[in-house]
Simulated scan of single mutants.
Amino acid sequence: MSTDTRPANPETKGAIELTLAMVLSGTLGVFVIESGASPFNVVFFRCLFGTATLGLYCLARGFFKNHGFTPKKLGLAALGGVFIVFNWAFLFESYEDTSISVATVVYHTQPFYVMLLGAVLFRDKLTAAKFGWLGVAFVGLILVAGVSAADLTGSGDSAYLAGLGYALLAAVFYGISTVITKRVTGVRPHLVALVQLVLGIFLLLPFTQLGEMKGLGGDWGWLVGLGVIHTCVMYVLMYSAYQKLPTPKIAVLAFVYPAVAMLMDWAVYGHSVSLLQALGIPLIVAASLGINLGWSFAGRRAPVAPVEEPAPAAGAVAASRTEIKTGGTR
């Protein structure tokens, strides 16, 4: 009897790794809410436990040798980390004011802010197709937001409207971090993420109310999980997968994250989107894929200029290889 000892297809392994990472990312909202801590406290302890575990991983793998950092690269990584850390805080606040489902879908408008920032700051070309997909995404965003006339006139749920604003602000901060961190080349993404986690500890300490953590009891497990599972383990899986997968497969698998997030929101909290909101979700998904894969409305793929593959910021989960290599985190 013979046994096939050939190594597994790297692309298949990468697809499994990225799928697992996206599934873990989809459970993030539950861990945040179940911890019972305020958004800034959650981010602080995510950075704290994430630093400990990811730091040990980097040490065990020897990543600190020939790290590739220069003062400029370190400064850019840190600057990107400022926006990533507050991106987390605003996203977690949005979970509480809206729902995990709505906040996650609204947050997935990130690629469009990256595109617009690239055009403004670096004069990246905006084609007619990109403007078209931006319009599609905007329509989808309006539907998903589910904002009524009462909300806009002040007689509706002001907290819900604020939550939508937090999700949009988190997405904008993600975009800014992406644009900054894409300049950090020649450095392992794990180390870029570690720099940003360490920065987050000191950056958020003034905003953290440690007195609230007394009597947290078993809920500490949720915070530890955010640092160990949703930071160290998830990042390692994603960074490994990115090296093995082509852009189209990454773009598609990235949407496992919002799908799982919506499923968890329904299963744990009984939250579901309305029919009108559900109509907006495929519009945002299609627009994101269209932007990242260079789709045109004529049915032909637009040419995409070759780009370098710089290191991502802390745990990027964008919908293309380029943005995944340069973006933020969940």
Rank of each mutant, 00 (worst) to 15 (best):
R6M: 12
P10V: 15
P10R: 13
A15G: 12
I16F: 14
L18Y: 10
L18M: 14
M22Q: 04
L24V: 06
G26V: 05
G26L: 03
T27F: 11
V32F: 06
F40G: 05
V42N: 02
V42Y: 02
V43C: 09
F44G: 02
R46L: 08
C47P: 04
L48K: 02
A52E: 03
Y57L: 05
G68C: 13
G68H: 09
F69Y: 10
T70K: 14
L74P: 03
G75Q: 07
L79F: 07
G80V: 05
G80S: 04
G80Y: 03
G80K: 00
V85R: 04
V85E: 06
V85S: 00
F86P: 04
N87M: 00
A89D: 06
F90G: 01
F92R: 09
E93Y: 06
S94I: 03
E96M: 10
S99V: 00
V102E: 07
V105R: 00
H108K: 00
Q110D: 02
M115T: 13
L116N: 07
G118A: 04
A119F: 15
F122S: 04
R123S: 14
T127W: 10
A128K: 15
A129Y: 15
L134D: 01
G135L: 10
G135D: 08
A137C: 13
F138R: 09
V139N: 03
V144C: 14
A149G: 14
A149L: 15
L152G: 02
G156F: 07
S158C: 00
A159G: 02
A162Y: 01
G165K: 02
V172I: 10
V172M: 02
F173S: 07
G175R: 00
I176Y: 05
S177F: 05
I180L: 13
K182A: 04
T185G: 11
G186T: 05
V187E: 02
R188A: 12
L191H: 09
V192A: 01
V195W: 03
L197I: 00
I201E: 02
L204D: 01
L204C: 08
Q209F: 09
E212L: 14
K214Y: 08
L216R: 11
G218P: 04
G218R: 13
G218H: 12
G218E: 08
L223G: 03
V228Q: 00
I229D: 01
H230S: 03
C232Q: 07
V236Q: 01
Y239W: 08
A241L: 07
A241W: 07
Q243G: 15
K244N: 13
V252H: 10
L253E: 02
F255Y: 15
Y257C: 01
A259I: 12
A261W: 08
L263S: 11
M264E: 04
A267D: 03
V268E: 00
V268T: 06
H271T: 11
L276K: 12
L279N: 09
G280Y: 04
S288L: 06
S288D: 14
N292D: 14
N292H: 09
A298G: 11
A305I: 12
P306V: 13
P306D: 12
A318Y: 09
A318D: 00
A318N: 12
A319Y: 05
R321I: 11
T322G: 09
I324N: 10
I324R: 01
T326E: 09
T326G: 13
G327F: 08
